[in-house]
Computed example of a mutant assay.
Amino acid sequence: MTHGFPDLPDVDALLSSGWKPLAFQQYIMKIHSRCDLACRHCYVYEMADQSWRGQPHRMSDAVADRAVERIAEHATRHDLPEIDVILHGGEPLLAGAELISRVVRGIRGAVSTGTRVNVNIQTNAVRLDEEYLRLFESLEIRVGVSMDGYAEAHDRHRRFSSGRGSHAQVSESLRRLTAGPYHHLFSGILCTVDVRNDPLRTYEALLEFDPPAVDFLLPHGNWGSPPPFRVPGSEATPYADWLITIFDRWYGSPVLQTEIRMFREIMRLLMGGSSRAETVGLSPVRMVVIETDGSIEQSDILKSAYHGAPETRLHVLRDSLDLALRHPSIVMRQLGERALSLTCRRCDLMSTCGGGLYAHRYSPGTGFAEPSVYCPDLYRLISYIGERCERDVARLRGAG
């Protein structure tokens, strides 16, 4: 395999040439660093970076207030019409209603009147009770839930530390969210793919909760620590095969049952549009993480690569988010094609695939100078979706 990869960029030279970074639009705030589940596939606790062990359990009020100020400062300085704040963890509900309210009210009060603040919380839903739902209603917080499908599929990984599965409790919470007056707060379901689970049973189990959107996530891994059933160098495509089964059901449905973001993003890119997700495409990444202790970091998914991978050595108590925009690793995520390996740049699907998720490119020998460890799966999935859509376009033209 041939590789060509630039060193980390000379940011001053880029700026002198007229290049400008795009301001952060999405802010992930890790308001609690621990979790009440012990999921086997969790990149925060079970993979290479173990920095969670040194994090405070809960974001302090002082750090939360300063993080709010930094976000508002950045949004105002760059005149952003809209920002997304995602409350994350660990399990963010462990932080408690008081801190959640403090952060959300603080940000909405601090940004300029011309900036809309969208707030989402990503939860395992174990603690999603009526009291929390009333709070989220009052604060206009949308709720994303992590669920892996039917009971056996979900409980394969998403368990309590005792080994007991969480499906029953998560299902009860989802019914509380979706069956009553709070359905409008529901933003969707995150489902981590396990190819041992039946794809259609998984999809149908998620549809029971009428999700507005579903994100199917490839389990995190890389060339040094491959994901389950993904053998580096093998041309087998177990993940594409699994996802294609669901794509056929979703795409062939006479009515839109839900949005599946991965499929929709691929279709948008194939039609010449730009990506709105970091999983595919070449759109600049405009996301930053504020850790529980106030550290400013890159995507937390990088924790799956090696210890310290997301670090920038910046902190909200002393550094502005504009400084993070100049960090070479963050700049790399905004350079599009120039940040890809030679293998990716020579690929006919480069503009659609975009090299896949950045963390999945990591190799202990070459850093992020590789295609995705899921390269064969991504190539097959994108090609399949493209061919299926092309056939339908040709059929429509013939009928016209």
Score class of each variant (00 low, 15 high):
140 E>Q: 13
135 L>E: 10
145 V>A: 06
151 A>Y: 00
139 L>E: 12
136 F>P: 01
136 F>W: 12
125 A>H: 04
128 L>I: 02
117 V>R: 10
132 Y>A: 12
129 D>G: 11
121 I>M: 08
134 R>I: 01
138 S>P: 05
155 D>P: 00
126 V>S: 00
152 E>Q: 11
116 R>M: 12
144 G>E: 09
154 H>G: 03
123 T>A: 05
147 M>C: 02
147 M>Q: 02
124 N>Y: 07
149 G>Y: 00
142 R>T: 12
122 Q>R: 03
121 I>W: 05
138 S>W: 03
155 D>W: 01
152 E>G: 00
128 L>A: 06
118 N>P: 06
120 N>Q: 13
132 Y>G: 02
132 Y>N: 09
120 N>M: 09
150 Y>K: 02
131 E>H: 12
144 G>L: 02
137 E>H: 14
155 D>Y: 01
121 I>E: 07
133 L>E: 01
123 T>K: 00
155 D>K: 02
150 Y>Q: 00
138 S>F: 04
144 G>I: 02
145 V>T: 06
141 I>P: 00
136 F>M: 14
133 L>G: 02
125 A>P: 06
154 H>F: 05
154 H>I: 04
148 D>A: 04
139 L>F: 11
154 H>N: 15
128 L>H: 03
123 T>E: 07
125 A>Y: 03
153 A>Q: 00
123 T>V: 01
150 Y>A: 01
142 R>N: 11
132 Y>H: 14
146 S>D: 01
138 S>K: 14
142 R>C: 05
131 E>Q: 14
146 S>H: 02
141 I>F: 11
149 G>T: 07
